[in-house]
Design a protein around this nucleic acid. Structure first.
Lengths: 167, 167
DNA sequence: TATTGTTATACTCTATAACTATA
DNA sequence: TATAGTTATAGAGTATAACAATA
């Protein structure tokens, strides 16, 4: 069972040193966060982006698809694929704007609001798990730093609710 | 041009409030980080994971594919798709272990080392751009927090060099 | 013509399982 | 049989361009 590499290497190579470059580190942790979110929301038949969408409608009230997509940082073509199942399940309504019949105004239904609340519990649990390695102060620190990064993110403005009880 | 939503909404909805849930925030910023890395490394015909791979070989010396994959947190089947082009371009060597002919030992070539160094410059530039919103102290803070998260990450141990000049 | 939303296609990264060859 | 590596297929998330309806 020969394991020895030809050269034992120079750099300080303790196996848990985690020397990934900051950007890749962020990218990989982001993947993990997405995986956990997906796993948690799967029981509620929601994709992470769909959860975000519902939360955004709860916070902003009805929105046109254009505004919705722009705020979420998502292309209109992708937004459609999120909305169709939500509308079919009655969690969201899509009605034409009477003043500009091109626009589809999306609104959260009562059922959608309830679904959001229950899914939020699962999401919250997943988050507590994801951030188990750092305490409450550090979580706030992290959030502040991430929001600062979000500013010059190529992605988009992004905005959504936490999924807390809808006051 | 009617924009007004039916309800002006309750929550404090300044457009730049960035209220996305922490985990989704992390996930989306991670996607952005990956996109930027990819764009920067594209000119060097390297995927982010391939850059990580080269950096790891530089830091650890030759490694079996199993060890490589485990350290990177990547499935063996995926690792192959990264290695094949690298080997074809002569940036990496793949030779059978004489003592256990099942093992393929992967090593960085001189050309691979040079390529890593030049690609690292592009990656560094992309990183400065990605983290432009926060200062040096905050970057260190962020890194510390992310490494802490990495501990209980479902992903894997992960470890790689920064891409600095190979001493 | 320009804009809103829709559809179709493709790309990146990853996950899973079946297969080959060595042990 | 078990292990190291390979191949093939599929999934999630996103990007791009062409299209229909309305302005």
């Amino acid at each position: 069972m020969p394991i020895a590499p030809t050269e034992p290497t120079a750099a300080g190579s303790i196996l848990e040193e985690h020397l990934t470059s900051p950007s890749l580190l962020l990218a990989l942790l982001g993947q993990d966060a997405m995986r956990r979110l997906r796993a948690a929301l799967d029981a509620h038949d929601l994709k992470p982006r769909q959860f975000q969408l519902l939360a955004m409608l709860r916070d902003h009230g009805p929105l046109g698809q254009g505004e919705l997509g722009q705020t979420m940082g998502v292309d209109p073509s992708i937004l459609v694929t999120f909305l169709n199942p939500l509308e079919a399940r009655g969690l969201v309504t899509r009605r034409r704007d009477a003043l500009d019949r091109r626009r589809h105004v999306v609104g959260l239904t009562a059922a959608g609001g309830r679904h959001l609340v229950s899914a939020a519990r699962a999401q919250r649990a997943a988050e507590d798990d994801l951030f188990a390695g750092i305490d409450a102060d550090q979580r706030q620190q992290l959030r502040t730093l991430l929001v600062a990064l979000q500013g010059n993110s190529a992605g988009a403005p992004c905005e959504a609710g936490d999924g807390e009880d809808p006051a």
